[in-house]
Design a protein around this nucleic acid. Structure first.
Lengths: 216, 216
DNA sequence: TCTCAAATATACCATTGAGTACAATACAGG
DNA sequence: CCTGTATTGTACTCAATGGTATATTTGAGA
């Protein structure tokens, strides 16, 4: 079943290029903050082209979000499975890979998902888009959680006893760095933060026991 | 020089009450996301009243932000100076006091400043308001930094060697928890995150030395 | 070269955004 | 009980928003 090519005027723009441009606008401004005027200007197409290629603002946003996940999120996780590498190093590389992206001057600062997810709570994001954002946010948390559950070294260190908690700690740190990045804090400053969090996690078993005693 | 009372129709609403209502709208929606229609509806006044009491949207936002700082931010810091209390406990109480506020159902989720600061990067916030937000964000970081510099126990533990770094770590964690709170994560889940970060910080001197060796 | 579907450009629509003009109203001082 | 002043309610302005109708181009197939 081949694609039926029905003749007509040829498209002047590349869909992927336009999508990337749209993604960067959403990344900088959020869903609500990004206007169609600015979107189409950056995409270098006009509104009717946008509407009959992508559907509407929400559909464009969903495709842009998927583009972000594929191109700017998935890549980092390879660091987690690097063979012959201590878990601490793999986690640190993973975290810093993300932090460096958050701080990069090549792209908008911070994290696309963190920014837009915070709009969801405001209630101004359409249902389907909100669902995608929520699902996308759950992914890295699950990835880390599974790592702690299955990784040999993690089990040896006892980190598998609280997979979810440890994953939440790291993910929360990354949300924090995303916010800091947006305020123009440098990735080298944030490296200290990541180190602190990892140190805390790796000395968890003893430390948490003592902290429980400390609190009232 | 007394206040000259020139007679006229009496104001029907209380300025502070209206301001608090406005603050909650900004807290939930951000500066751009909060429309005058919604603001005035929640403040239970109409637009002309709002304009001749507060000036305009930006002026209202600035007053609402100051209201937030006074009523929802300053109070937490007393925990930092509680006498006869170990530093670890004081920090934990401080952090959890903020986290509980972020997760409270009595108010919008997350942190007013984190949400609005992220809009600043988008460029849609007027200059004066943006300056206030930036200044407000610097405050807790400075507070923590000074604590690490001057507190006897902090000095004993060597935490004064990197005041800024340690302050940044804690503040970044709080920005992270603010974002998580907005995604409806509970304060009890986030307590584990705070514990992890504090543990990391308190075992900093040794840990950071070893982590430097670990990375590449 | 004629045809016709698909893409473009321009102009438009309804709604909502921030901000205002103005008349009606309420209140203190004389 | 007037008079003047400040607040309120309604109705407006003007620009920007998401989304479309329509006419004009383009190019592959017959």
């Amino acid at each position: 079943m081949d694609i039926i090519v029905v003749s007509g005027r040829k498209r002047k723009f590349d869909e992927q290029t336009a999508l990337q441009a749209a993604m960067e606008v959403f990344w900088a401004k959020g869903f609500v903050g990004a206007s169609l005027a600015e979107l189409t200007k950056c995409m270098k197409i006009n509104k009717p082209s946008m509407y009959n290629t992508f559907g509407n603002k929400e559909a464009l946003f969903i495709k842009a979000t998927q583009y972000y996940i594929e191109h700017n999120l998935t890549s980092h996780s390879t660091a987690l499975y690097e063979p012959n590498t201590p878990l601490h190093t793999r986690l640190k590389n993973y975290m810093m890979s993300i932090v460096r992206m958050q701080c990069s001057t090549e792209q908008p600062k911070g994290c696309y998902l963190v920014l837009c997810q915070s709009e969801v709570a405001g209630g101004d994001i359409p249902t389907d888009a909100a669902a995608l954002l929520t699902e996308a946010e759950a992914r890295p948390k699950l990835l880390l959680s599974e790592l702690f559950r299955n990784d040999k070294e993690a089990i040896l260190l006892g980190l598998h006893h609280n997979c979810a908690g440890n994953a939440l700690s790291l993910y929360t740190a990354l949300k924090g760095t995303a916010a800091m990045a947006r305020s123009k804090v440098s990735s080298s400053d944030l490296e200290y933060v990541i180190d602190t969090m990892l140190t805390g996690m790796f000395s968890a078993s003893e430390a948490h026991a003592s902290s429980v005693q400390t609190i009232q």
